[in-house]
Each structure stands twice: as structure tokens, then as C-alpha cells.
Design a binder for these strands. Structure first.
Length: 333
DNA sequence: CGACTTTGACCAGCGC
DNA sequence: GCGCTGGTCAAAGTCG
């Protein structure tokens, strides 16, 4: 069970417990009960019968309440533990991001290099992310299989690899790089990935970020405020594509397109475009930050842990997204 | 009443 | 030039 599911579960149990408390609590709290009690006073004989039935009902609900309380307590403990794990992971993530940022911005590095970054919790064990990355840097040119072995050992990897054809730039319009965050700890269900495309023409730069996320709602909550300004049915996809504009600050050029995946309707494909001209609200998503040409910052975000993304800067924008499962771990996706 | 959504119209880019 | 398609505009409607 994921953290958000547990939190939802806790909320549900709290509500049930509250309902039960009302049922077994002061009679006066329930207007219907009050009315019945009034009738009881008028007719003592029938009133005694009702009290007996209420007593039996209260015994049952008290037992249920105890069970629910115990369950809630257990979930609370699990939530505490999971929060600790997330805190620890984020600390390691920050270290990793700093090193990754240095790495990806290295002037000597070819632009068309694909970079993979995998993050795993690895059974909640404490990982030495920073030292591992240092170690990894020494062997990044060596056999990829060794890297994969390291992945298994430590659960964290930074896996740069030469890349020119996978995401394709046949026309030479831009260069893409792809960063995948892939948690191997299936119980947490984290999967995240980022693909970046850098425009070769510096005058024609326009950041684009595509995010695939499993989401039930019409759009995912990314922390920013959006206004819908259009909707179109794109060719090849029966699901309409919605167009949103950022309304956090007047004149913010950032826009996003939201469309359901044709193959899997539960997957929401969100494409962000542009650079925010305002500070992001607390809780705003990493994707929005990414549009500000800051890949490493995106990697830092707490929210990224449940996403698989593709980031394009002036990329083809052809709607061809990275394949694979996606699942948000946002509180309210 | 203001903010937001809906939806048809319009426009630009692209391929033929 | 024409048609197709994606993206945007803007008026009308809706909602809180």
C-alpha cells in the first residue's frame, strides 16, 4: 500500500470512527434520535424496548470502534515510518542532484548524451548516494552491465550513456537527453523519468516538459494555478486535448496541454511549455520548475517521485511520449 | 460579479 | 493554392 493510499485510508477510518462515535455518543446529538426520545417519554412502554435495542447496537459499534482505532494506530505508525523513509531519501536525493547537476552541465560533455538516473529505496536501507555517485563517475565509461549490477547492490544509479538515435533527432533541430527515475522497490511504486531536448538554435529555445501520470481526475494537481483556454480533439486520439495557461501571475507565459493516453485512459499526459515569470507556490511541481531550463532542480522536487516525464526544449513536440507505466505519488493527483 | 469553462471560429504551419 | 492539423481566441455560459 502506498503512502497516499494509507493516508486516504486513515482519513476514511477517522471518518468512520467519527460516525460511530456519533452513533454511540450523546443521544441529543442526533435529531432523529431526539425525536424518538420525545416519543419515548410520551409512551414509556415502547421506550423501554427502544433502549434495549440501542444497547445491543452500542455494544457492536464499540467493538467496531476499538478495531478501527487499532487499525488507525497501526496505519499511523506505518505513516510515520514511511515519512522517515521519504525524508531520508530526499536528503540523499539532494546530494545526488548536486552532483548530477555538475555532471550534466559539464562543458566537456557532448550535448547528445543520454543520461539515466535511477532512484531506488532499496528496502528502506540507508544508501550512500554521494559516495556511490563519486564511485560511479569513475566507471561511467565502462561496461553498462556493471552499472546495472551496482543498481542492484545500492539501489541508486546515475547511468550516463551515449545517445543519438533512441529519442531521435534526425533533422538536427535539437538534442534530447533522457533521465529516468526508476524505483526498484515495487511496494512504493515510484517511477519517474525525464527526457530533455535542447535546441541547437539558442534563439529558438522553448522549454517543453511532458509528464505521464496515472491520474483519475481531469488534470493532476501540480501546485500551480491554471486556466483552461481551449480544447481540441487531436488526430489519432479520441480523447480531447485541453489547453491550460498559468494564472499564478499575470502574464506568465507557461502553458500546459493535458491529454489522456490512447492506450491507457488512466494515464494522463501533461505537457508543460514555457518559463514561469514568478516564484512557484509552495508545493508547485517539479515539472513547472523544469520548464525554467533547470533539469537538476526538477530532479530535486519532492513530487517527482511518482512520475515518468519527458522534457523537451523546443523538441519535435509530436506527441510521442516515452512509454512505460507511470504513477503519481502526489497527495491529490 | 468575477473567475473559470465550453466551444465554435480563426489562424499559422506543413505537406501535397 | 488547397486541405489538414494543431494551437489560440473570444463570446457565451456556468459556478461560487
Amino acid at each position: 500500500m502506498s503512502l497516499e493510499e494509507q493516508i486516504i485510508d486513515e482519513t476514511r477510518i477517522r471518518k468512520m470512527a467519527t460516525d460511530l462515535s456519533l452513533e454511540i455518543g450523546d443521544d441529543g446529538e442526533d435529531p432523529e434520535q431526539e425525536r424518538k426520545e420525545g416519543e419515548e417519554e410520551e409512551d414509556k412502554q415502547t421506550g423501554e424496548g427502544d433502549q434495549q435495542r440501542n444497547g445491543e447496537k452500542n455494544k457492536m459499534t464499540e467493538e467496531e470502534l476499538c478495531l478501527l482505532k487499532a487499525e488507525m494506530h497501526q496505519i499511523k505508525e506505518e505513516n510515520k515510518f514511511l515519512k522517515k523513509v521519504i525524508d531520508q531519501t530526499m536528503k540523499e536525493y539532494y546530494n545526488l542532484q548536486a552532483k548530477f547537476s555538475n555532471y550534466i552541465c559539464h562543458p566537456g560533455q557532448p550535448k547528445d548524451q543520454e543520461v539515466f538516473l535511477s532512484l531506488g529505496l532499496n528496502g528502506f536501507q540507508e544508501t550512500k548516494a554521494s559516495s556511490y555517485i563519486d564511485e560511479y563517475m569513475k566507471v561511467c565509461d565502462s561496461d553498462q552491465s556493471e552499472t546495472r549490477r551496482d543498481d542492484r547492490d545500492l539501489g541508486l544509479s546515475l547511468r550516463p550513456q551515449s545517445h543519438a538515435s533512441l529519442l531521435g533527432d534526425e533533422k538536427g533541430k535539437g538534442v534530447q537527453s533522457w533521465v529516468q527515475l526508476d524505483n526498484k522497490h515495487q511496494t512504493m511504486g515510484f517511477t519517474a523519468g525525464i527526457t530533455t531536448t535542447q535546441s541547437i538554435n539558442p534563439t529558438n529555445r522553448k522549454a517543453r516538459v511532458s509528464v505521464r501520470a496515472r491520474c483519475q481526475g481531469p488534470t493532476m494537481n501540480d501546485g500551480c494555478q491554471w486556466r483552461k483556454y481551449g480544447q481540441k480533439v487531436a488526430k489519432g486520439n479520441p480523447c480531447p486535448r485541453a489547453y491550460y495557461r498559468c494564472t499564478v501571475a499575470p502574464g506568465c507565459p507557461v502553458r500546459k496541454q493535458v491529454q489522456r493516453c490512447r492506450e491507457d485512459m488512466s494515464i494522463l499526459i501533461t505537457t508543460y511549455e514555457g518559463v514561469h515569470n514568478h516564484p512557484l507556490p509552495v508545493g508547485a511541481s517539479a515539472m513547472a520548475s523544469t520548464t525554467a531550463d533547470n533539469t537538476s532542480y526538477m530532479l530535486l522536487s519532492n513530487h517527482i517521485t511518482g512520475t515518468r516525464m519527458k522534457l523537451n526544449e523546443d523538441g519535435p513536440g509530436d506527441g510521442s511520449f516515452a512509454s512505460g507505466k507511470a504513477g503519481w505519488n502526489f497527495r491529490d493527483c
